[in-house]
Write a protein that binds this DNA or RNA. Structure first.
Lengths: 143, 143
DNA sequence: ATGCAAATGCAAACCTTTTGCATTTATTTT
DNA sequence: AAAATAAATGCAAAAGGTTTGCATTTGCAT
C-alpha cells in the first residue's frame, strides 16, 4: 500500500517539505483517533523518524494554521489533533475508555440561523462534543 | 441589596461554611461572565478577602464537584467557572472581545436520541459552544 | 554547488493547575 | 464554653502541557 503524497500537499500550501511534516500528516491521516502531541512524538519514534517534542508542537501548529489538521480541546487536558478531511465533524467521546468517534451529521444549521437573528452575532462556527459510554464500557460496568 | 445566603447552600451540601467559599459563590452568582480562577482571585482581593490562588483552585474544585459551579473549557486555555443555575446552557463566544453569552435553548434533543440508536452509546451529555462576532465587534471591524 | 531563509534540537522558560506540609479555622465532642 | 478533631488555608514547590531563544541543520532558490 502506497503512501499518499503529503509532500505535494505541503508544497501546495507553500510549506517546506520535511520528512517530519509528511510523517505527521501520514500518522494522523491513518489514525482512527485524534492524537496528542506526545502520541505523535512516540509514533514518530516508532517509525524511526524521531523528532523533538517541541518540533512536533511546531509542526502541529503550522499544519493546523494551514488547515491541514484540526486541533481539538475535548477534554480540557491536552490538545488532540486530527487530520482535516474537510468535512464538518463532531465527536462522541466515551467517558469510560476515552475512545473518540467522529460524527458526520450536525444538527446545528437552523439553530445557528435563529441564534444569529436573536443575538445579532455573526455566527462563524461551533464546537459540539457529545459524551457517553460505548457499548463495550456499558457491558463491562454493569455486572 | 442583601446577599444571598450561600452559607446555607454550603451547609446543605455538607460543606464547611467558610468566608472564602461563600464569597466565591457570591462573585460567580453576580457575574455576567464565567470567570477564571485568577479573575476570582483578584475579585476576592478587591473585596478585602484575599485568598491564596491555590485555595481558589481548591474552592472551585469542591464547588464544581458539588454541582454548585460549572467548569467551562471553551477556549482550550484556562478554565472558566460559572454559577450553576441548574438549567441546561450553551455559550456563544465573541471571537473579537471574548465576551460570552449564555444561550438557554438547545437543539440537541432528538439528535442525541438518534445518535444513541446509531452508535449504541448511552449518551450522557454534550458540550456545545458557538463562535462568532458580537454586534459591537462587527461594527468596529468593518470600517 | 552556494547562500539564505526556514526547520530542527536542545534546554530553559512559561502558564495554569496541583500537591505536600505546617498552620489556622470550622465544627463536633466533652 | 473549652477542648478535640477533622477539614480548609497559605506557602512554596512541583507537575504537566506547551512555548521560546538560540545554535545547528536542512530545504530550496539562485
Amino acid at each position: 500500500m502506497k503512501d499518499r503524497d503529503f509532500d505535494n500537499d505541503l508544497a501546495q500550501k507553500g510549506l517546506r517539505r520535511t520528512r517530519h511534516r509528511a510523517a505527521v500528516l501520514s500518522i494522523l491521516e491513518q489514525s482512527q483517533q485524534p492524537l496528542s502531541a506526545e502520541e505523535i512524538f512516540m509514533e514518530l519514534k516508532a517509525r524511526e523518524m524521531p523528532a523533538n517534542l517541541s518540533t512536533v508542537y511546531r509542526i502541529l501548529d503550522v499544519l493546523t494554521s494551514n488547515n491541514m489538521l484540526q486541533k481539538l480541546n475535548i477534554t480540557g487536558g491536552k490538545s488532540l489533533y486530527e487530520y482535516n478531511r474537510m468535512v464538518h465533524r463532531h465527536h462522541l467521546l466515551c467517558l469510560g475508555c476515552k475512545k473518540i468517534l467522529a460524527i458526520g451529521s450536525c444538527p446545528l444549521g437552523d439553530f445557528e440561523k435563529d441564534l444569529a437573528k436573536k443575538t445579532d452575532f455573526s455566527i462563524e462556527g461551533h464546537k459540539l462534543d457529545i459524551y457517553g459510554y460505548c457499548p463495550e464500557c456499558r457491558k463491562n460496568d454493569s455486572p
